[in-house]
């Protein structure tokens, strides 16, 4: 599906935000699902890149992507300007599902892993309190803290160099808050794998349901290449992250 680029906004560090308008509304966009984005019409780069939906319009007439320039494909995307066209397919995969009756939701994000929580908080239904733990190496890589605060979330930041928020890893304020006796109904996490692994272990130790968003290398995004596999916990067989995930219950998979 072709989309028109409406916005390409620098976010600090290597991050930028693409605001896209599909030529026709796209159904079933949900936080945690992803699009496969074509970075070039040539064979270089060849494969599409998987990108998690950030914010989106409920009627599917617009959505955003938070992109980090890491290689050739994403650096091509960074040069897009309004009215350019971009080709995406999707959305694919599972989404972050807020459990029925949940009153308190914590999200732990690293880097561009904050993306799905923008849409999640924008479209939150019912009376749910949101706390977002945002971690980064340094302050300029902490993105969307203010925007999340504006939407009513409590935002706790941590940087590894101490340039903003708490000094250290994002899991430290998470543990501190749990130790103080607070306990959410569910924890969602998205970001680097070591961070998600740590968050999943902490959640498990406290008996809290936790959903993780895995980000394996994938070629297709819809289950055909069988490239993006992960192991189901306690099983020998592999499952595809793109079609069975990317959002899994932390108990379900080996992280």
């Amino acid at each position: 599906m072709d989309c028109i680029v409406r916005v390409n906004e620098e976010l600090g560090g290597d991050f930028f935000y693409l605001g896209l308008e599909p030529l026709e509304p796209i159904a079933d966009i949900r936080p945690g699902r992803f699009f496969m984005v074509r970075c070039s019409q040539s064979a270089d780069p060849f494969l599409r890149r998987p990108m998690s939906v950030a914010d989106y319009k409920k009627d599917g007439s617009g959505f955003g992507l938070v992109v980090q320039t890491v290689g050739w494909g994403t650096s091509l995307l960074s040069t897009l300007v309004p009215w350019d066209r971009i080709d995406v397919i999707g959305p694919f995969g599972t989404n972050f599902e807020v459990p029925d009756g949940a009153r308190s939701l914590w999200a732990v994000a690293g880097g561009s892993g904050v993306a799905p929580f923008l849409g999640l908080i924008d479209h939150a239904e019912g009376d749910v309190d949101h706390t977002v733990f945002l971690g980064a190496r340094t302050s300029e890589l902490l993105i969307y803290a203010d925007r999340l605060k504006e939407r009513g979330a409590c935002v706790i930041t941590a940087t590894e160099d101490g340039s903003s928020g708490e000094h250290g890893l994002v899991t430290e304020p998470l543990v501190k808050k749990l130790d103080s006796g607070e306990k959410p109904d569910v924890i969602f996490t998205c970001g680097p794998t070591p961070m998600m692994r740590a968050v999943a272990r902490i959640a498990e130790a406290h008996g809290i349901k936790c959903s993780v968003s895995l980000e394996n290398r994938m070629a297709c995004g819809f289950g055909a290449c069988v490239g993006c596999v992960t192991k189901k916990r306690g099983e020998e067989n592999y499952i595809t992250v793109c079609s069975r995930g990317p959002v899994f219950d932390s108990f379900e998979v080996e992280i």
């Binding site: 270089d44 394996n216 290398r217 290449c225 069988v226 490239g227 993006c228 596999v229 592999y238």
Partner: peptide, 9 residues
Amino acid sequence: APRICEAPG
């Protein structure tokens, strides 16, 4: 995994 990666073309 990893089972796949991009290559030139």
